[in-house]
């Protein structure tokens, strides 16, 4: 990862622009940004650690605390709140058994965050989960995505694209997988989550 980070500055007119893509790589690898990770990123980019931390703390997609393997980003801004987003959050908290956004579910799988407008207001209430938008949320849909991810626990280390290409999951799993879920987006990008060993392909946009 550090080697990859060291290659980033050359891609921009000035090297400092590499700081967010670098933090991105670190967060993808580690799940969240530890002080040590930020220091290493700083060293790799020849920047002051305090500067890097200053950038990381400014942007809400950088997490400085551990998150669940699957993090729910539920929009509760006005357009979604007017269509029941707060009730969705209440249901979600109960369903994954957490009191607030800093807490991770006891199995380590889930955490959530109430976020500001995600720019899909015609589909309100909506959320982002595992790099995808989920539309027209209901309590049943929340239950469904949770059940699907609990069922997937053992497959999570497979490279995401391969997983997307082989839809039939191993048979005989006890957790119910309702039909027709996850239909908004054809390709499923990598899942974010805590420590993973396997290296991953470079992001197209980095």
């Amino acid at each position: 990862m550090l080697d990859e980070i060291k290659e980033l500055p050359a891609r921009y007119p000035q090297p400092r622009s590499a700081v967010m893509p670098a933090l991105d790589l670190a967060q993808e690898e580690l799940g969240h940004l530890t002080p040590e990770a930020m220091s290493e990123v700083a060293a790799a980019l020849e920047l002051d650690p305090g500067y890097v931390e200053g950038v990381a703390t400014f942007y809400s997609l950088f997490h400085l605390e551990p998150t669940g393997k699957h993090r729910f980003y539920v929009c509760t801004n006005l357009s979604c709140a007017l269509r029941g987003a707060n009730e969705i959050v209440d249901h979600l908290k109960a369903a994954i058994g957490v009191m607030g956004p800093v807490q991770v579910s006891s199995d380590g799988l889930f955490s959530y965050e109430e976020v500001e407008c995600l720019g899909a207001c015609e589909f309100a209430p909506m959320m982002r989960l595992d790099h995808r938008y989920h539309h027209d949320l209901t309590e049943a849909k929340i239950d469904q995505v949770i059940a699907e991810r609990k069922g997937r626990k053992e497959e999570i280390h497979l490279p995401a694209r391969r997983r997307g290409a082989s839809p039939p999951r191993s048979p005989g799993r006890s957790v119910a997988k309702p039909p027709g879920g996850e239909t908004h987006v054809a390709i499923e990008p990598p899942l974010p989550g805590p420590p993973r060993k396997a290296g991953r392909g470079k992001r197209k946009d980095a």
Binding site: M20, L23, D24, Y59, S60, L61, F62, E116, D205
Partner: peptide, 8 residues
């Protein structure tokens, strides 16, 4: 492309 990281 340059990806933002969540700041209005």
């Amino acid at each position: 492309l340059y990806r933002g990281h969540g700041a209005y």
